[in-house]
Design a protein around this nucleic acid. Structure first.
Lengths: 148, 148
DNA sequence: ATATACTCTATATGATTGATAGACTAAAGG
DNA sequence: CCTTTAGTCTATCAATCATATAGAGTATAT
């Protein structure tokens, strides 16, 4: 399951992407626009900032903006930041490998072999899907749904 | 993350598949062989039985066996049984769709569009991988690792 | 200076996970 | 039958995690 943090983070980033990179967007506005609990969103944005995904400015006229073009912010980084490794089991993770304590022979562990395929498929998708790509999908879906 | 229940369930089922379908295997033996906590395994096997994945026999000479050939037991069923829907968000689930309470327009929700791809990829893998297929992968990996 | 708006730490709490205990029931076999 | 064997079922529990909320603190613009 995707945590609320990841979900809210993606929504917030999409909101920032839509807002544009000219001037910062305030937390309060972002929370209202995306229907996110503001105080919770603050924590999320803080994590995103510490990870270098967004930038912030304090004081009047301050707020948040994307730290780089939406084309270069991948969902994989966001999901890993809040939910940890993509792999269903730690021993199948590429970026955060941890061996199983109990596993007798990892190389031939059935669970690991199957879950490695899942993790690879997930990583292929999330590491190649940028915020900009999501926005394009949204636009395409809107066009499709709109022809009634 | 895959829960321990799912992980143990797959291990136990692989153990039963290896044991063969001639005679039942006792919980205690299965737990020892696969290094699983026995009392916990009992609950897992009970769920698997209620789901029709395994059969049980009571009394002397009793135990558990697969309810159908290993070729026809898919990982997807097992994982769904213990961890729920494969989709990272309920609104992207095929088998257990639940709309988001807050979502303004589901058709163009960016999170949903991206996560639907993840769920489809995951389902493609887990619903097409049988216990027998996993066993073949294990054998192949053993051959590969064994040429030292 | 002062209002603005992000920053940081602490806390609550409810659900979920992983696991254990023990009483109960059905079947086999003498 | 009656005893042994082995699965069945319910309750409970500790620990962890997820989802927030509160409030004091800090930097910035004007």
């Amino acid at each position: 399951m995707l945590s609320k943090k990841s979900k809210y983070a993606i929504k917030a980033l999409l909101g920032l992407a839509e807002h544009g990179s000219d001037e910062p967007m305030r937390i309060a506005d972002l929370a209202r626009q995306e229907s996110l609990p503001q105080k919770f969103l603050e924590l999320i944005l803080l994590d995103l900032r510490n990870a270098g995904v967004v930038q912030s400015r304090k004081g009047k006229g301050g707020g948040y903006l994307l730290a780089r073009p939406a084309e270069r912010i991948m969902l994989g980084q966001v999901v890993r930041l809040f939910d940890g490794p993509l792999a269903p089991v730690p021993c199948a993770s590429q970026t955060a490998y941890v061996p199983c304590a109990d596993c007798a022979d990892e190389a031939t562990c059935g669970v690991r072999l199957a879950m490695k395929e899942v993790r690879d498929a997930t990583a292929r998708i999330l590491d190649q899907t940028s915020l900009a790509a999501v926005r394009r999908k949204q636009a395409a879906a809107a066009r499709k749904g709109g022809r009634s």
